[in-house]
Amino acid sequence: MGSKHSKETTSISNASYHVPIGSSRIPFVALQEATNNFNESLVIGKGGFGKVYRGVLSDGTKVALKRCNPESQQGLAEFDTEIEILSQFRHPYLVSLIGYCEERDEMCMVYEYHENSTLRSHFFGSNIPRMSWEQRLEICIGAATGLHYLHTNSVIHCDVKSTNILLDENFVAKITDFGLSKTIHRFDQTRVCTVVKGTLGYIDNEYLIRGQLTQKSDVHSFVVALFEVLCARPAIDQSLPGQ
């Protein structure tokens, strides 16, 4: 693949690989081992980029592995953007990138695994016990802190929603999925986009209608997610008339 992250390829044997946290490039064979050759029973999510698998590296580290669908139209651009953002910024309320793989026609990203899935999964279509109001408040404050950190570093997430807020074993919020993110100049807080990207129900009208993207676009999306947490109702409910 023609990504700007490409490096000279080295030969890879079939031996097991020890992949410590903090490494950047991970051999594809190590990811095959971690996911039992991408066993479908380990799929924990799907999106425009591809599938997300649960896995365990050879050192015992639990990971979430996002594998690009080679037919995806958005794969390469999002792959580069996500690596660029997560390589630059580290924060307690942002998901951590452990490494990536770009080998032959394969593009994969490896993240820390979060035991409690997405924020959305705790409210819609699951048998997971409901959170206390105190838990909800702490999660929302954590996500807001992570979003504020991005904005102070001139990054617009562009796809804030309850499925892009992960929860670790202690229910600490972690913002994820930076494939659509944009950087802005600190003296020019608006970007005009010819193609609007994001999730319907969360996109603000200024961005949707005029293509004007600002940090307020993220704030609008986050407020929609807050209402989901408050009301335990999805942003768009297809069962309702007019939706």
Rank of each mutant, 00 (worst) to 15 (best):
L97S: 10
C140F: 11
G211S: 01
F171R: 04
S6R: 15
Y111N: 11
T118K: 04
F28L: 15
Y111S: 14
V160K: 01
S72R: 03
G211E: 06
S6A: 13
L167R: 01
N14C: 11
I209F: 11
S126F: 08
I85F: 06
W133Q: 07
V229M: 09
I236G: 14
A235R: 05
L76Y: 02
N39D: 15
L57I: 12
F49Q: 00
T145R: 09
L94Y: 01
D80R: 07
R104S: 15
M1F: 12
I203V: 15
A144W: 01
S217E: 00
I141M: 09
V192I: 07
G146K: 00
S132H: 10
Y53F: 15
R186L: 09
E71V: 07
A144R: 05
G211H: 06
G45W: 01
K46G: 03
R25W: 10
N164I: 03
G198C: 05
V160M: 14
H220E: 02
I139C: 03
G75A: 06
E134K: 13
K46V: 09
L150C: 07
G125P: 03
H151R: 01
T214P: 00
Q212K: 11
G201I: 00
H220Q: 05
Q74C: 13
L226I: 14
I98P: 02
L97N: 08
Q88T: 12
R25Y: 11
V63N: 07
I175K: 01
E84S: 13
D204L: 05
I98S: 04
S217Q: 02
Q212L: 12
Y100A: 06
C108D: 09
G55K: 03
V223G: 12
L167H: 04
R136H: 10
I21M: 14
N164M: 09
L240Y: 07
H185D: 15
C140D: 04
L208E: 12
K216V: 02
E206D: 06
L150V: 03
L65V: 15
G50M: 01
F187Q: 14
G211F: 05
K4P: 00
L57A: 11
Y17C: 12
G45D: 02
M109Y: 06
L57E: 12
P27K: 08
I26V: 13
K46D: 06
V95I: 15
L226T: 09
G142N: 05
N205C: 12
V172I: 15
K197M: 11
R90F: 07
V63T: 12
E138A: 10
V160L: 09
K66N: 09
G146N: 05
Q88Y: 08
G242Y: 11
I85W: 04
R210V: 00
H5M: 09
S87H: 13
Y53R: 06
L119R: 00
S87Q: 15
R136L: 09
A34Y: 08
Q32H: 10
N14Y: 14
I139M: 02
R233C: 10
S87D: 12
T81V: 01
V195K: 15
R186K: 13
L119M: 13
K7H: 12
